[in-house]
Design a protein around this nucleic acid. Sequence first.
DNA 1: GGGATATGACTCTCGGGTAAGTTACCACGG
DNA 2: CCGTGGTAACTTACCCGAGAGTCATATCCC
Lengths: 211, 211
Amino acid sequence: MASSTTARSGAAGARGGTKGVARGEREEQILAVAGAVFGEQGYAATSVADIAARAGISKPLIYNYFGSKDGLFERVVGEAAALIVTEIERSARLGAVGVERGLVTLDGVFGVLEGRIWTWQVVNDPTAPTTGSIATVQDACRRRLEELAAEGVGELLRLAGVTDPLDVEAMTAVWGQVFATLVTWWTQHPDVTREQMTARCVRLFDAVLAR
Amino acid sequence: MASSTTARSGAAGARGGTKGVARGEREEQILAVAGAVFGEQGYAATSVADIAARAGISKPLIYNYFGSKDGLFERVVGEAAALIVTEIERSARLGAVGVERGLVTLDGVFGVLEGRIWTWQVVNDPTAPTTGSIATVQDACRRRLEELAAEGVGELLRLAGVTDPLDVEAMTAVWGQVFATLVTWWTQHPDVTREQMTARCVRLFDAVLAR
DNA sequence: GGGATATGACTCTCGGGTAAGTTACCACGG
DNA sequence: CCGTGGTAACTTACCCGAGAGTCATATCCC
């Protein structure tokens, strides 16, 4: 029964078998590699085979651990979103108001992202599926940022005598993108430290905003 | 050998044949449909078969006319980019300065986009190929906007005493995204007229910017 | 009849996902 | 100290559907 299963193995043959890496360890390794690759190339342009190759393992192992490409991506996004949301909630609790609050949040996010820029890219990946549980996770994270934005923006505009709800809505969208742009700009300038980046934001806000 | 080619056609059979539509006419029709579909779903999520179905024709006809999916998309993006670039160059020649200039450009772009919002989506499609001639066309269009932005932003910051080149670079990126966000926000609020949108921009700039 | 316009049915590649088998580690009895 | 079986980790080789791109053929107008 077990004598000559198939002629599959041949000379070189299949050489599967454990490499002595425990499940948890392997899982973290895959998540780290997947985060980097997804962040770099985007969800759509990344194949599971890519990640397997970069991690030095085979594709089915990834399916064994995460079930599907989406399952893997969801785990990656989940970790990333948790990191960011935790940070912006912490920043919100610091009690800064108005523009100051925006700056504090930016600084906090810069801190969390140091050395793991893919975190931001992955949560804001425009090529990710727009429906399903992945989108749910991404949306939750973005909505949290949006909430913070809406507060600060509403206050700012009220002071300036603007009350139209659509005005506030549009401005909130703008501020959200300003935030994202500053973060993205930073991720593209690796030589700039977090402190320098925060100082830059302060300078620019001072120069441009009427307070 | 040649007697009975194949049993391909059968009873119902292929029913090709001209429908009396001239080449130029058909081409414009396809471009119009393709623009709408690409703008709505994005490059990656759109199949050539989708466009053919929406246009009421068959897939090979599109290949006959445009050679490839990329060829078609490039034509669509080319038209869209030309429209936008022409408009922002026209706006630039009007001679407005500083914040005023930004508002004039926004208003002009709103005007051009009325009733053809896909124009904007297609040029800024994040799922389009990032290399090749398509990217070249998109980049040229975006770079033009960036140039305009750099001028206005440089001036604004100089007045406020900010001269660091990286500051200017970052702020230019921010302004570019603010512009894009306002346009995108408008495309998502079809009930808002161009005039209302321009007025909104004026209000928001007044409220927020130090002039 | 001839050329332009049009199509059904096909091929080919890429990438997600799976089946089945291979190897290493580990506990335990002798 | 040496099997020996059970299980967890791992791989090769495959399936299958979607979508880009092609070929041979069919119809219409002049």
